[in-house]
Structures are given as C-alpha cells and as structure tokens.
Amino acid sequence: MEKIKITICTGTACYVLGGAALLELEDFLPDELKFKVEVVGSACLGMCKNALPDSKPPFVKVDNEVIHSATVQKIISYISQR
C-alpha cells in the first residue's frame, strides 16, 4: 500500500507558530497509523505569505491536502478519517 505522505513545513513562520511541536508527530502516532505514513520536512511551502485570517501557519500537507493551523491532534484525526 502506498504510504500517506505528511509534509511538515519547517519554514520560519510555521516553525515559530507551532511547527516545532509538529516535528514530534511520529512519536504520537497511534500504532495502526505508524506504518502507513511517511513524515518529511519541507522548506517554506509558500503558503504563509498569502495566509488569510482563517488559514494560518503552521501548514502541513497530507499528500496534496493542506492543513492549516496544524496541531498533532488535528493531523492525526485528519489521517484517521481518510
């Protein structure tokens, strides 16, 4: 099965607005998800510069879907629902 690719933005804006904590995502993944995902870092995804009030850093991409204001919980529930 193809793995779900989670891209965490490590650009400055995302990093200071909570991205730092997201890098520990792998430690929090429930066992059933651990082997289904691949976590990678990325330079600025370019989304922070047009960020709207309801779409704020940190940004994370799950395959091609963007999650804004990402938290570990938000990412996990997003992938579990897929």
């Binding site: 965490i8 490590t10 650009g11 400055t12 990093y15 991205g19 730092a20 890098l23 520990e24 976590v39 990678v40 870092g41 990325s42 330079a43």
Partner: peptide, 17 residues
Amino acid sequence: DVEVDISKISKDIPPKS
C-alpha cells in the same frame, strides 16, 4: 536537491537541511 533533515530535532531551532 535540498532536503530538510528532520532526523534530529531541537526545541528552539528549526532543523537543518
């Protein structure tokens, strides 16, 4: 290619690439 290296993370400083 530039690749972010998230194998080592620190609390305060973004990871290197």
